[in-house]
Amino acid sequence: MTPLPKDILFDFFDGKATPLQRKLIEDWLMIPANEELYYQYLDEWETRHMQFFPPLDEALTQYRQELNGERTRRVRALYDPPESPFRFQRWFWWSIAASIILLATGGGLIYQDQWRYSTYRTGFSETATHRLPDGSTVTLNANSVLQVPRFGFGEGRRLVRLTGEAVFKVAHLPDHQRFVVDMGRGVQIEVLGTEFVAYARNRGQHVFLHKGSIKLDLPQGKQLYMKPGNLFTVDADGHGKLTETAPAQSYLAWQDHWFYFDNTSLSEVVQQIDEVFGVQVVISESGLARRRIAGNFKATKADQLLQSLSELLNVKITRTNDHIELRTLTL
């Protein structure tokens, strides 16, 4: 077969080849070696038809880090949503803020996260409500982090990650797109449009369904469907439990800074104080730690709650430099 003039291929790459020329190229490509030539010409053609100049040095530096194992492997590829024409300009600043925080912490995985996700974060004693681009709202309890993909949230599915506690009011989209909350440790909540509370901290996890319906994806491929009023809890050891009817207020009231205690041990109360306010309370007397309380308390600061507790239980609050101690009042 006669060699194919390079011009014909270049015309083809330009989109200027006639159907007859196309056939010529097709026949020419029947010889495998010519496919090699095809890519060689394509590369030449690209060199002559540059459209942009990606920052090579920057990319090479990153690649070197990957080669030296100093950076975790990239796995965005096709599994992650592509950029969407959705409005995320508001997130931009959030992601900048998140980037700074996360870059400061360093590390490969973290690096990847800041790149992929917009992060909503609340400090201690702080709650915040955010409206996501799909119209869903999320109210974050104190000391919580919600990550939302920067690219293509709302294309295919809406996936977010939660650490901490949040009330989700998920908007049902016309195309019945799933909203998925990844709570870590293999637990995911899948919904269409509904209202629920998700809690995911070291102490364990729970999901309380207020309205609508939920599918829970659990480790080892287990699934669970929840009805309104259902509470699903997972303890720190990974044991799950479904409660048919749980009092909604206990799980929702924190939005208005209420603490609902129902036969709750004081040791659990102080754990909550730590989670929400970032204040360490020590109870050295085991008898006191086991005491159980019931009641509703409104508190926006740790002090308010501790004050109420000290009155209720007749305990003394002692402050040291780094923590607070509760002791039985001795006369």
């Binding site: 690209e46 540059m50 459209q51 942009f52 100049f53 090579l56 990319a59 990239r74 796995v75 950029e83």
Partner: peptide, 29 residues
Amino acid sequence: LFRRYYTNLCNHAIRFVYSKEVAEDIVAE
């Protein structure tokens, strides 16, 4: 290999994906 082909491959990818960022990601991956 990276030095030699990165730029050209990004330029090729962008013809399909029409986004600098996506093109660069695809090639880096």
